[in-house]
Amino acid sequence: MQGSMDVSSGEQTPLGAFLNRIMQRSVLTADEQQAILDLPTQTVHLRGKQDFVHINEQVAYSCLVVSGVIARVGQTAKGARQITSVHLPGEMADLHSAVRPIGLGGMTALCPSTILRISHGAIRQVAARFPAIAEAFWRDCMLESAILLQWLLNVGRRDAQTRLAHIFCEVAVRLGRNRTAACQYDFPVTQEQLGDAAAMTSVHVNRSLRALHARGLLTVTRGRVTIHQWEALARAGEFDPTYLLADMEPHRQERLRISV
C-alpha cells in the first residue's frame, strides 16, 4: 500500500484528534489524511445546557467536539427528554447529518463546550474525492449505530445500577487510548442529564451512584469519575467492549476494492 505515513499531528488540533479516531479503524494514505486535516472549520462556543440544533431542524454542518460533552436528544409529547447519544472530544457528533441533515434528533451541550462546524459540502467533497475517506466515514457512522444499539439495550432491559455502570464503562473506553479504559476521567454532566441518558429520575441516579460507590466500584464527584475496580464495574454493567473495539485494528480492514 502506498503512502501510509501518518501525517496526523498528534492530538494537538481538533481535526488531528478526529483523524486519529478515524485511523483507529480505517487505513488512510498521507494524501487522504491531509485532506481530512485540511477540512475548513468554524469554531463555536456553547453554554452548558444550550440547545444548538432543535429537533427536526435541518442543518448544513456536522459538529466535531473539541471540548465538553455534546448530546443528541429526543423528547416526548410531555417534554421528557431522552439523551440518545453523547459525544466526546475528538468525535464527530453528527457525521451522518452530511447525508441526512434532518430527522436524527436535536443536539445540546451538556456542559460548556466547544465544537467545530464543518460544512456538509466540504465533507461530501472530501468523501467524493477519496473513496477510502467515504468508507472511513461510513464505518464511523456505523460505530455510532453500534453504540446506539447498546444504549437501546441499556435503557430497555437493564436495571438502574447496571445502566449507569454500563455508561461509565463505555465512556472510559471511548476516552481511553490504545484499547485501554481510562479509569479516571472528567465527565461533567449533571445527575439529571445522566438520568436523561439512562431513562431514570435524578433522585434514582443519585441513589444508584451511591450504591455503586458503596460496592467499591466507582466514585463520581463533581464531574470527575474514578473507577476503583474496572473488572467488577464491567461485570456490574454487563459491559463487553467488543462493540467498541472489535474493528480497532485498521490492518484488518480491507481498503475498498472495486474490480471493473
Binding site: Q191, E192, R207, A214
Partner: peptide, 12 residues
Amino acid sequence: YNDVDVVDEEGG
C-alpha cells in the same frame, strides 16, 4: 430517605 439517606448535593 430510604434504606440509606441520599442527600442531593447538585439540585436541579
